[in-house]
Design a protein around this nucleic acid. Structure first.
Length: 644
RNA sequence: GCCGCCUUAGCUCAGCCGGUAGAGCACCGCAUUCGUAAUGCGGGGGUCGCGUGUUCGAGUCACGCAGGCGGCACCA
């Protein structure tokens, strides 16, 4: 007999080898009907699998959040079965559940077409209707390999061969179709339901390695109910509306053209956004004790040889030559340049920590397939800085940086999600003692700044650990913005030194750090975060002054001058159009404030303010409106904090 | 870079089985001066991504190239 404890604390005894289904039946008929999985001591298991030992048990119904992953996983199996029924000879590989859905990778010489997806989806629904039982079988290793080889499933056979010898090999059978799988699965295909949809077709490399064969991946989404599926599809549509490339075009912010792939042409409005953020960043860096520099865009090959980039980074560099046979490269990074400034003349320990910032424009040759709007470009400007310091200053500098980064992200409307501490990778330089110390320093500095980092095991750089700042946007997506990386190597390579208190020459440590990352990417994120409706301090056009009648034109120009005198970014719309038309157009353009001016306002020296997203209007004397809006449009770091 | 899909007016898109292009918005002109999400009428605008081929004839079919998009890989 075994004893099972239920979530409510009750415990009951059962025969050895009782199934989850039998346990559910012992509790209630209706529960047994709805049950699809059990959780035994934290592990999800098939409902019909024998329970060999007692423990904590929970019976999950189909609508339980944790059942969703299994629905998706099962959907991928159903898809694989559908594909093999429709296209005999296609090999299956792997097909996991992923966020919002699932995929399965197939090996097939002919490409799948979008029409095939429709057919596959229809066949999947058939299989769901057939209500095939999903049966778990434990196979002997060699027999399993032989079986999959025999039926021509070379990839499956390879997977089993690579499993550890003591691993239990399980095969799930649904009708006549079998797949190697760890499980667990739902009791039968009916439970998958029909709230799924095949969404896209893509290439993917076997085991994620570009040297391997390219497989065809079919992606799908699957949900517990039709409502959830519909909600997901609307969510995707909403996200598409926020696409920065679409908004960039609609709001005339920037463009990219064929002759400059990955290079951005910033239009006046987009550049205004850029300048607003750059000015803000510059104030924040000044206040945080940074000095700003500017280093050359192009430097000789010999320079990049010294820095080590020529050897390691060459494929990503834009190299150019001159008529005098010099070979030069556009800078892919700012750090070596900053070391040159550090090295110019003599440095004393009194100069440290030296925080050297640059809005540094870099060029990197990124693979063509990776380019993506503003998010991944070849020419970009980093909010880069290098902190030269003594080893004992690392902790304090890190703590300051964590605090600074958090306030900046918050000011720019991004919610902090977490900080990742990327620890030693398997292939690394430096002793374990060095890594122990470096990781401990970053950890304790984060804690001092009031943040508990999430450990990203093995994600560190070759030379040292780093901190990554992950933020969340308005629709819950996360982005890595901001990083801090320790570097003992570059100062060594480029011979950076300072004179210590005892007169000896010492090597400084460098902290590479960025808060936004690149302006291009950050602006892309910002555009998507706000869906183009920027807060007034960031909006390229803050106020549109729209007239109702041409009689008010002169007064409208006068109002514009008064607003501009307060530093507001203003446009005037005197067109011979109805006010409805103007309000609609500027609202769609996401202008934060429309100042409507008719004959009445002109006579009384007033403006009627209408904010984006509201139909109310506030009528104010012009001078008061100017002060009021100016106050509201003040960047967060310049706002007067109320005194407590 | 790899796989798949896409490319028609400034923008968003239609164009069936091949018979030399069409809408809405935008733009220009005229009328209208109208109080908070589209005033009416008129007009201009296209080497149908580029190239080659098939054909009496190609936006439409075939092949190649380029760019874009979605993934994969890459991402100091």
């Amino acid at each position: 007999m075994i004893e099972l404890q239920f979530p409510d604390g009750a415990a009951r005894s059962y025969e050895d080898g009782v199934t989850g289904r039998a346990v559910a039946e012992s509790l209630s008929k209706s529960l047994a009907k709805k049950a699809v999985l059990i959780r035994l001591d934290g592990e999800l298991r098939d409902l019909d699998r024998a329970i060999e030992a007692g423990g904590k048990i929970e019976i999950l119904t189909r609508d339980h959040p944790d059942a969703l992953e299994t629905i998706r996983h099962d959907a991928s199996h159903v898809m694989a079965q559908a594909v093999q029924e429709l296209f005999p000879g296609v090999q299956v590989t792997i097909g996991p559940a992923i966020e919002d859905g699932f995929y399965y990778d197939f090996a097939r010489d002919e490409p799948f077409s979008l029409d095939d997806l429709v057919k596959i989806e229809a066949r999947m629904k058939d299989i769901v209707d057939r209500d095939e039982k999903l049966v778990r079988e434990v196979w002997e290793r060699d027999a399993a390999i032989a079986h999959f080889k025999e039926i021509g499933e070379a990839y499956k056979a390879e997977i089993i061969s690579d499993l550890p010898v003591d691993e239990t090999i399980t095969v799930y059978r649904q009708g006549s179709w079998k797949d190697l799988c760890l499980g667990p699965h739902l009791p039968s295909t009916r439970h998958v339901g029909k709230a799924f949809k095949l969404t896209k077709l893509a290439g993917a490399y076997w085991r994620g390695d570009h040297r391997n064969a390219q497989l065809q991946r079919i992606y799908g989404t699957a949900w517990a109910s039709e409502d959830d599926l519909a909600a997901y599809l609307t969510r995707i549509e909403e996200a598409e509306k926020r696409d920065h490339r679409r908004i960039g075009k609609a709001q005339d912010l920037f463009h990219i053209q064929e002759e400059g792939r990955g290079m951005v042409f910033w239009h006046p409005r987009g550049w205004t956004l850029w300048r607003t953020i750059e000015a803000y960043m510059r104030r924040k860096l000044d206040a945080a004790g940074y000095v700003e520099v500017k280093t050359p865009q192009v430097l000789d090959r010999t320079f990049w040889e010294k820095s080590g980039h020529w050897e390691k980074y060459r494929p990503n560099m834009f190299v150019c030559e001159t008529v005098e046979d010099e070979v030069l490269s556009l800078k892919p990074m700012n750090c070596p340049g900053h070391v040159q400034i550090f090295n110019f003349g003599q440095r004393s320990y009194r100069d440290l920590p030296l925080r050297m910032a640059e809005f540094g424009a870099c060029h990197r040759y990124e693979p063509s397939g990776s380019l993506h709007g503003l998010m991944r470009v070849r020419g970009f400007t980093q909010d880069d800085a290098h902190i030269f310091c003594r080893e004992d200053q690392i902790e304090d500098e890190t703590e300051r940086f964590v605090r600074l980064t958090r306030t900046i992200h918050a000011d720019l409307g991004m919610t902090a999600h977490h900080i990742a501490l990327a620890t030693r990778p398997e292939i690394r330089a430096g002793s374990d003692a060095f890594w122990d110390k470096a990781e401990a320093t970053l950890l304790s500095a984060s804690r001092k700044a009031g943040v508990e980092p999430v450990i990203a095991e093995g994600d560190g750089a070759f030379y040292a650990p780093k901190l990554d700042f992950i933020v969340k946007d308005a629709i819950g997506r996360t982005w890595t913005c901001g990083t801090l990386q320790l570097d003992y190597v570059l100062p060594e390579r480029l011979g950076a030194e300072y004179v210590a208190e005892d007169g000896s020459k010492q090597r400084p440590v460098m902290l590479h750090r960025a808060i936004l990352g690149s302006f291009e990417r950050f602006l892309g994120i910002l555009i998507e975060n706000y869906g183009g409706a920027f807060p007034i301090w960031l909006a390229p056009v803050q106020v549109v002054i729209a007239t109702i009648t041409s009689d008010a034109s002169d007064y409208a120009q006068d109002v514009a001058r008064q607003f501009e005198a307060q530093g507001l970014r203003v446009e005037v719309d005197l067109r011979n159009e109805k006010i409805n038309y103007k309000v609609r157009e500027h609202s769609l353009a996401k202008i934060p404030v429309i100042a409507v001016i008719g004959r009445k306002e002109a006579e009384l020296g007033q403006v009627a303010l209408r904010r984006l997203g509201s139909t109310d209007q506030t009528i104010l004397p012009t001078a008061e409106a100017a002060r009021f809006l100016c106050d509201e449009a003040t960047p967060p770091d310049l706002k007067q904090r109320p005194v407590d």
